[in-house]
Simulated assay, not measured.
Amino acid sequence: MPRWEPNAQLRLEEAALDLFAERGYDGTTVADIAERAGLMKRSFFRYFRDKREALFGGADRLAAHFQEELESAPADLPPWDALLTALARSGRLFPEDRGLARKRQNVIAANPELREREVLKVARLDDLLRALLAKRGVPEPQAAYLVRLALTVYEQGFDRWTEPHTTTSFKECMADAAGELDRALRLRTAPAGTPPTGAPDGGTAG
Rank of each mutant, 00 (worst) to 15 (best):
R36A: 13
L84C: 02
D18S: 12
L10W: 10
R11S: 04
A75M: 10
I33C: 09
F20N: 06
Y25T: 02
F94T: 00
S72H: 12
R36V: 01
F66D: 01
Q9R: 15
L10S: 09
A73D: 07
E14R: 15
A59L: 12
A73R: 07
R49K: 13
S43P: 00
M40S: 10
R52T: 15
D18H: 12
R89Y: 06
V30E: 03
A88C: 08
R23I: 10
L93V: 04
G27T: 05
E69L: 06
L17A: 05
F94Y: 14
R52K: 14
L62T: 08
I33L: 07
A31S: 14
E68A: 15
P74Y: 06
A37K: 04
L10H: 10
K51W: 04
D60P: 00
A21N: 06
V30N: 02
G91V: 06
E22W: 11
L62W: 08
R46H: 12
L12V: 03
S90A: 14
P74D: 03
V30C: 06
D60T: 04
L62F: 14
K51R: 15
Q67Y: 01
G38M: 11
R42S: 10
D60F: 07
L39W: 11
S90M: 06
S72L: 13
L84Q: 11
R11K: 15
G24A: 08
E14V: 03
D81L: 05
D81F: 00
A59R: 12
R89N: 12
E69C: 08
P78T: 01
A54C: 15
L10M: 07
F94H: 12
A15Q: 04
L55S: 00
S72D: 09
L83G: 02
D60R: 15
Y25G: 03
V30K: 05
R23E: 03
F45M: 05
E71H: 14
E68M: 13
A34M: 13
R46S: 04
E53K: 11
E53S: 10
F48M: 09
E22R: 15
L93N: 01
L87V: 13
L87I: 15
Q67W: 07
E71Y: 01
A59H: 11
T28A: 05
G57D: 04
L87P: 04
G38V: 10
G24V: 10
L10V: 08
D50Q: 07
F94I: 02
L55T: 02
F66N: 05
A16C: 02
S43W: 01
K51F: 03
R42F: 14
E22P: 05
H65G: 05
A31C: 02
